[in-house]
Simulated assay, not measured.
Amino acid sequence: MTRLFALLALALALAPPAMAEPFRLIVSDLETPLVPNSVMDLALSNGYFERAGVEVELVRVQQTPMAMAALQAGEGEMANVSTDALLQLVARGTSDLRAVMSPNKSLPFLIASKPEITEPAQLEGRSFGIGRVGSLDHSLSGKVLASKGVDVAKLDLVPLGQPAVRAQALLAGQVDATTMSIGTWTAMPERDSVNILIGMDDYFAAAPVTTKVNIVTTETLETRRAEVEAVIEALVLASRDFQDPATWVERMVVARPDVPRADLETLAEAYRQSWSVDGGLNREELKVTTEWMYGTEDFQGLRPVSLEEWTDFGPLEAVLQKLGPAAG
């Protein structure tokens, strides 16, 4: 019997260590998106997570509410969600969620108009297509236009729904201007017939709002912190590589063969300054984000929340100390 126990002990000692469970990253895109958020898909398919020493599995859901629910139900360790949804949960009493990075902190919005409108001030008294009153495109664009000296009270707002519908309405001359993403702009068949009134970089400069973040639970931070840092490291390194437009295009040609290469090249140039090369969390931008969101209709009556209640900069700071700042 003693010999049997000895053999069992030897077998256990020589057996390979049990594999850790994959680190599940919840994303709300059902395929690789045509925005910098594609870095999460591309980091997986191009070996960035593996090189950082973490096994990652993507869990795909539709939209932030499902991503948030999946994370809270234990179906993943990290989730990419909208900042406003996170803030609302925290304001209502949720205390165990923390933003640790943002792989795509800003929506790539621009404002397009009829070609005869060349200055934002010319929009006063004109029709402006929005998703709905109080929607993100409506409230953000109001902030952008106000910074350009436009009296937004003088806009004739036309609720139209989705960006593609608004873009079509602009092409058809049904509205004078509207907000859309650079991806929607690129997909427009006759985009040369309309004008980019406020470009993507100018839009973000006027409204430096962090709209998406990657969050984890405080339990995950305590029990799997090394993997959290490894995921952040992989996404930062991938983002730095994708600053080179040609690199992103080559990866996306494989991930999205349905998209014309010329469109990918246009998007790559537009995103040159949009990659989260230092992790995407900036204290000043997050303060601006919180202040702006609390001025919108969705936050009326909610208690103010401090930055410490919904962010943890520790993992990102550890990664950046290891990697150093991005070139340039």
Rank of each mutant, 00 (worst) to 15 (best):
A11Q: 01
L12W: 11
A20Y: 01
P22R: 00
R24D: 04
L34W: 10
N37T: 15
S38A: 13
S38G: 07
L44Q: 10
E57M: 00
L58F: 02
V61T: 00
T64Q: 04
M66Q: 11
A67V: 12
L71T: 04
Q72T: 11
E75T: 11
E77H: 13
A79G: 12
N80R: 14
A85Q: 08
A99W: 00
M101N: 06
K105Q: 13
S106E: 09
F109K: 14
I111V: 13
A112C: 14
E119V: 13
G125K: 03
G125I: 03
G142W: 13
K143G: 06
S147C: 14
K148I: 15
A153S: 09
L155W: 10
L155A: 12
L171S: 13
A172R: 07
Q174T: 03
V175C: 05
V175I: 12
G183C: 06
T186G: 10
M188E: 07
E190V: 12
S193H: 09
N195T: 09
I198T: 04
D201P: 00
D202Q: 07
A207I: 03
V209K: 02
K212M: 15
I215D: 05
T223D: 06
R225W: 07
E229V: 02
Q243G: 07
A246N: 13
V253Q: 12
V259N: 01
R261Y: 03
A262F: 08
L264P: 05
L264K: 05
L264A: 03
T266A: 14
T266C: 12
L267I: 06
E269L: 10
A270W: 08
A270M: 13
Q273L: 07
S274R: 14
D278S: 15
G279T: 05
E284F: 07
L286C: 01
V288I: 09
E291M: 01
W292I: 05
Y294N: 05
D298G: 15
L307N: 12
F313Q: 07
G314Q: 08
P315S: 02
L320T: 02
K322G: 03
L323M: 04
P325V: 08
